[in-house]
Design a protein around this nucleic acid. Sequence first.
DNA 1: GTCTATAGTAGGATAGAC
DNA 2: GTCTATCCTACTATAGAC
Lengths: 188, 188
Amino acid sequence: MTPRPGARQRLLDAAEELFASGGFAGTPVDAVLARAGVAPATLYAHFGSKTGLQAAALAARLRRWDDVWSAAVAAAPDDRARLLAVFDALDAFGTGGTPSRWCAFLDAAAGAPADDGTAVAALAEDTALLRGRLRELAAPVAGEDAAELAEHLLVVVTGALAMALRTDPARATAQGRATAAALVDRWR
Amino acid sequence: MTPRPGARQRLLDAAEELFASGGFAGTPVDAVLARAGVAPATLYAHFGSKTGLQAAALAARLRRWDDVWSAAVAAAPDDRARLLAVFDALDAFGTGGTPSRWCAFLDAAAGAPADDGTAVAALAEDTALLRGRLRELAAPVAGEDAAELAEHLLVVVTGALAMALRTDPARATAQGRATAAALVDRWR
DNA sequence: GTCTATAGTAGGATAGAC
DNA sequence: GTCTATCCTACTATAGAC
């Protein structure tokens, strides 16, 4: 790793941290520029707009989330733990950087002006990743009902992310894990 | 009901509809004024600020939600249906006005600048209402485990609200109901 | 209480030099 | 590619008349 990453990478890092903690709409471009130590024109040369930067930052975040989740699954001892590892991953993902009150993908879709396809597409990718992997991991536990169980867990994971707004994030993931466990145990 | 409500009420109605559909941050004051047919100064005379208007609109919305939910509970035939009636209420609440992609209370808290106590307080009231009534309704079904079941259902209801961003709201509530039913049936 | 008109400001984006 | 400096729009809020 070079001592100081290029402007593009610094912008992505700054955007991911600030958007995740303060929300996309609530984070001015100036704040990202200041944190990255970069001039306005550089941002627009690379990403075209604030929304373009958001899209790139979300794509990077999705890859990172994918990695963290994979690692959590690999570390789990059995099928049941692998299925519930998504909550370990959420804990690890949250404490990895700036503490985020809220899921960046849901935030992006919630704040988008309804005609902005960028944020919706990013959330769709996140949803597809969650649904797909939950189905794979549910198969050894629920067999033919894997798809059904995966849909239940998708609701619970999404609920845990949103519960971070109602209570503190640590409690939110803990409760989500408990609820998911109660569901999974129906198929034991 | 008078033919044309006063400016204050028209502002509240317009704010509730527009904030719910387009989000608080994404809805300019001008849009609320145009829909209400009211001049800027009138808004500030009544509510002091855009945030003040939001607070009043959220309070009105919470009362309306309380009523809709109560009605749905009253219409349910048995204990299990009364506990799951929250999803009927969500369907009825959504179709009542402008179709909202998203929960106004969660939106308010997600979009708030983190130091704004107004939105956080409104979300806390909403959370308290949900948790409290879910516990009452869970008692006949789960007995001593009512509090535990209520926490599970709080996650699922919150998840259903957030799932409205991932998919269409009707599917979100339907899936939420299914997940909640699976949980409730653990206590049968 | 309500209006018309306007002030003040913040945020997103660009022009042009190096 | 990057910087300095600046423009322009859109928004919140207010002043003053009726």
